[in-house]
Amino acid sequence: MFSNFDFDVIQRALPYLWQGMLTTLWLTLLAMVGGIVLGTILALMRLSSIKAISVPAGIYVNLLRATPLILVIFWFYFLVPIAIKHISGDSYAQGIGPFHSALIAFTLFEAAYYCEIIRAGIQSVPAGQVNAGYALGLTYSQATRLVVLPQAFRNMVPILLTQGIILFQDTSLVYVVGLTDFMGAASKVAQRDGRLVEMYLFAALIYFILCFLASYTVKRLQLRITPPR
């Protein structure tokens, strides 16, 4: 069936594909860290009893969660630099390039999803723990930092990592702005050499192996850290 396919094309393209994979991994890692940090802030805001803090965070999260990722990527790459130029009155638009635009888009987008995971995690910490903290004389921020978040994150690690795997898959969408991530590199080689079948199957295989191993590891981790009931 594959007699007239040329799988050497993959070998020739390996260095280029590796460069693409590095871009993919960097984007995933940075957006994940940024998304978790921002997501934690948003989660704390959403849980605040002050409406002026919780409502804007709620609007942000629901807006981002209702918008397709591709549309968000377009917004950031095409429109935000022009908006800033208008707001700041500069004589030029300060585009920050496809990688950084994508990074910011992914960070802000993922933050909305991380926020909901983290909010659930925080709520899973029994209120008695916080009250016990207050009884010991801790302030709100101390109780949050020393009592709530460490326990919440411990329970959440597997879900946060699983979301990271989804993010890793989603980074392939930077294809739409022409950024050369792993998928972008594969598709450029595929189109230049007319080898769509070989390159896309290869890309699928690599994504599958990486995601499968990662989710297997997360599953093992989950078994280990789940507190005994």
Binding site: Y175, M183, S187, L196, Y200, Y207, C211, F212
Partner: peptide, 13 residues
């Protein structure tokens, strides 16, 4: 199989 391959790649396939 289907959960571990990005949607974009599946669409191309």
């Amino acid at each position: 199989l289907f959960r571990n391959i990005p949607l974009l790649v599946q669409m191309f396939i």
